[in-house]
Design a protein around this nucleic acid. Sequence first.
DNA 1: GAAACAAGGTTTCCAAACGAAACTAGGATA
DNA 2: TATCCTAGTTTCGTTTGGAAACCTTGTTTC
Lengths: 128, 128
Amino acid sequence: METTTLQRAYDVYEDRCPTRLVLDRIADKWALLILDRLRGEPVRFNHIRRDIKGISQKVLSQTLKKLERDGLVSRTVYPTVPVTVEYALTPLGQTLTETVATLAHWAERNMDAVLTAQKTYDAAAELR
Amino acid sequence: METTTLQRAYDVYEDRCPTRLVLDRIADKWALLILDRLRGEPVRFNHIRRDIKGISQKVLSQTLKKLERDGLVSRTVYPTVPVTVEYALTPLGQTLTETVATLAHWAERNMDAVLTAQKTYDAAAELR
DNA sequence: GAAACAAGGTTTCCAAACGAAACTAGGATA
DNA sequence: TATCCTAGTTTCGTTTGGAAACCTTGTTTC
């Protein structure tokens, strides 16, 4: 009888599971907006920056780099003048587009319900 | 001809759109894990804490409070001894369960692809 | 009657992360 | 020489995050 180390399946509920790191990457406001924006054709750095209003260059740069490292986004440099850099979803990233779009735009469809809930909550808290 | 202020539709790509605040709430590692855990029957505070390994009481408490304020989660107190507090998804929160589950568990299904991508990326960065 | 335990939190404190603004690089254009 | 372009990086003050200790109400144990 041999002794083997059982390879546990990945479990995001476990503290030290590497999936936690990935979840932390995609469960992020800016990452979701970027992934959502990249649905469709490739987009250049400053184009993304203009479209996602309020994102800083630093955060855009950092987030793209992490998404690229995790294989969700590809980065292509064209030696034009000035240089052109295009970002696009990889096939892996494309597996998330539907989910990302649903989550990113959920607030747009349910904003009124959320605002109503907040008013109710705040009114009740007022009485305490 | 009368002049009216056109009420623009909510747009999460706009900087000051209130949907951004809601996106920030749900596009969060802990919030997603909590919402995922609440699928099904109501769960007590310490039960959630035990299940989502590594979450601190402070973060659990804060996140639940925000989710409750936004109308995604309900909080029910039972006057037992000691007191029992149950959290559950509201109907509004339930509209997110499918999406949340897909995103929260995406990493479990794609971890190997992500790890491979990271290795490739790091090896290429090494050469620079 | 003094500890210990239970549930459900809050407070404290230090480190890590964030964002706005300034700065950089390489080259083209005026 | 000065300015503009894309695509970033750096700086620095502020905010947020997590770990650990503490709190409250009430029961059981010693």
